[in-house]
């Protein structure tokens, strides 16, 4: 049986799709059969982040209407064949897939995968309920900004009222320097306010934009980056490994610490 996890946030633009793509890639790297479902009907983006936009021919809609087999709509990733993507609708049609069809498809996919990650649309309208309808677990993404924390709190309440109680928090786009200057809420502040277990902390990283441009999730980059490390840690924690949180002071040293580091390294 697969673990069905919905990735949601309430507010748009906090990094749901980026997180879904990168987590999926990490889980596939760890050797798990992973299926990503883009539940954002009409405004799908997950295919772009994975660089699979030209391969989407069939979607869940066609599977449900009987135009193609399920295997044809599951698009294998270029890098890891354990990872596949299922889009829920064509971008140019406004036809919505129903909640029942999504549940039906996920039931079919249960046997095929270890992990099913559902990328939920922003907002708490119909699309959100459709995305969470067959999930057993949820990852709530927020940034340390008041707007997205507020929306995350609302979403947590809605998830709980739909009997999804296994909810974990990912704090995205942390700016460590601003936190040190007390000009941004820290990880502790946000977890204290939202009161759900923390599973990941991802620093703001310009390289994410570059990787989006290329259509290759950042975890594929060979060069070390803080955010890709963070995604790998989250994937391991999802698997039940106990991994401590990285001390961000190490990656973002103050001027004094930076000098110290150079000084002690050179002697």
């Amino acid at each position: 049986m697969a673990r069905v996890i919905v990735i949601t946030s309430g507010k748009g633009g906090v990094g749901k799709t980026t997180t879904t793509a990168n987590l999926g890639m990490c889980l596939a790297k760890l050797g798990y059969e992973t299926i990503l479902i883009d539940a954002d009907t009409g405004l799908r983006n997950l295919d772009l982040l994975l660089g699979l936009e030209n391969r989407v021919i069939y979607t869940a809609l066609e599977v449900v209407s009987g135009e193609c087999r399920l295997e044809q709509a599951l698009i294998k990733d270029k890098h890891y064949n354990r990872l596949s993507l299922l889009s829920t609708s064509q971008n140019h049609t406004k036809n919505d897939i129903s909640e029942d069809s999504i549940c039906f498809l996920i039931n079919l996919l249960h046997k095929k995968a270890d992990y099913i990650l559902i990328d939920s649309p922003a907002g708490i309208e119909k699309g959100f309920y459709r995305a969470i309808s067959s999930a057993k677990e949820a990852l709530v993404i927020t940034t340390p900004e008041i707007t997205s924390v507020r929306d995350a709190d609302r979403v947590i309440g809605l998830l709980q009222s739909h009997n999804i109680n296994n909810i974990s928090l990912i704090i995205n786009r942390i700016r460590h320097k601003m936190i040190r200057q007390n000009e941004m809420m820290s990880v502790q502040d946000v977890t204290e306010v939202l009161a759900i277990p923390l599973v990941g902390v991802i620093p703001e990283d310009e390289k994410v934009i570059i990787s989006t441009n290329k259509g290759e999730p950042i975890v594929l980059e060979e060069h070390f980056s803080v955010s890709s490390l963070a995604f790998e840690d989250i994937a391991r924690r999802l698997n039940g490994q106990d991994i401590g949180f990285k001390n961000l002071d190490y990656f973002y040293p103050t001027h004094l610490e930076f000098l110290k580091k150079i000084f002690f390294k050179s002697f």
């Binding site: 008041i146 924390v149 507020r150 936190i179 007390n182 000009e183 941004m184 809420m185 820290s186 502040d189 306010v193």
Partner: peptide
């Protein structure tokens, strides 16, 4: 602003 925003939140 961190303390301010936390209070507002």
């Amino acid at each position: 602003s961190r303390y301010n925003v936390k209070k507002r939140l």
